[in-house]
Design a protein around this nucleic acid. Structure first.
Lengths: 205, 205
DNA sequence: AGGAGAATCATGGAAAAAGGGGATGGATAA
DNA sequence: TTATCCATCCCCTTTTTCCATGATTCTCCT
């Protein structure tokens, strides 16, 4: 019995690449591709693959959201996240939202096949590089409270403590406290390094 | 006479994708691929393609540097930049460093062929999306002087004006001036928004 | 030779952030 | 029921950034 594979990715070259890498495999069946989240969902209404290869950066929606939605509606579909970079938080979030695996786009044919087969059997697959990154993330997870995240975003928007306080209807000193906690959690010494770290970790855009 | 094409990209899937997209074309000759800058240069020492498809993000060196080096040593090779995103500054820098074209990885087969043929004839090709981005960049180009960039990087590293001044052997007031100029050039109001903008524009990492 | 831009420095004042304390109520979880 | 975490608030001091305005070199380009 062959494994049905579907792919959603907005890059022609990547779709072609994967098709080419997989088209010699007898025990795989290529059921099609989509180039955005919407047409992926439309396809799934009619036909369910066993394994769904999903780019984390889609034009209309983030792969993270799509992952959640697909897994909610069709729990039998196993999802493998695909991305170009080793992006800390993305890998974590994809796995948290129901993905069964994560593969980088520089994977070899063997790696990709192994991932698909592993995942189709209900197990979890992380490519070597992604696994290393995940370990790093797990080693030092930065968990922000709701309020801290709000404050962080307003700082990134250029507001001062006073402005933030007005906007959130709290005291300036409270904002100051949140700010100090942010510096501690990120282990940075000032606003510049705080924002840089937050952008790099994709906590803010 | 067929056009010799070589590709350097660290993503297997992309290489496979391009190979697959191009292998039906009679007037093209696929001369090989490399997965990093060094082996690309090694290949070029023995054999020169007409067109070199180059990822802007290589593991060992940025495509921008490689572009400059290749174009310096082998002016007859026409280079097409390849990237996943529509990245403002990258497109500009690749073109500045001797690239003849820029194509996004979501390009269709037709688009890619058109790019290769256009460039092989010594003309310039920009994919539609890339062209749009470039126009935006040209409309509001943020050009930093050498010193400003140095200061910006040190700010992003978390140094204060005093520390920056010591490191660069200049006065604190001078650093302050550079800092003010940075705020003006980026059209932002404080350090937080400055760093955010700089990271997003990939002026700092 | 003139002009533009880059880099350097200055003065002085206002605003904001960083760093150090400590305190209180409320929710939640062990 | 303690213990922990969260969000809220306060005081004080020092450091740093932001703003306005102006000036002097130097080099590069025309």
């Amino acid at each position: 019995m062959s494994i049905k594979v579907f792919i959603v990715d907005d890059h022609y070259m990547v779709i072609e690449g994967i098709r080419s890498l997989l088209n010699n495999e007898r025990n795989l069946e290529w059921t099609g591709h989509a180039m955005n989240a919407e047409s992926c969902l439309a396809f799934l209404r009619n036909s369910l693959p066993d394994v769904l290869l999903m780019d984390v950066n889609l034009p209309d929606r983030s792969g993270i959201e799509l992952c959640k939605e697909v897994k909610g509606k069709y729990p039998s579909v196993f999802i493998i996240g695909l991305s170009t970079f080793n992006q800390q938080s993305f890998i974590q979030k994809m796995m948290d939202n129901g993905a069964s695996g994560y593969v980088l786009k520089n994977a070899t044919q063997d790696e990709l096949m192994e991932a698909i087969i592993t995942v189709a059997n209900g197990k979890t697959y992380l490519s070597f590089e992604a696994g290393k990154t995940l370990q790093k993330v797990k080693a030092s997870p930065i968990v922000l409270t709701g309020r801290e995240k709000e404050v962080l975003e307003l700082i990134a928007d250029g507001l001062t403590n006073n402005e933030i306080a007005s906007k959130l209807f709290i005291g300036t000193t409270t904002v100051d406290t949140h700010r100090k906690n942010l510096l501690t959690k990120f282990d940075v010494k000032n606003t510049a390094t705080l924002i840089r770290a937050a952008v790099q970790m994709q906590i803010i855009d």
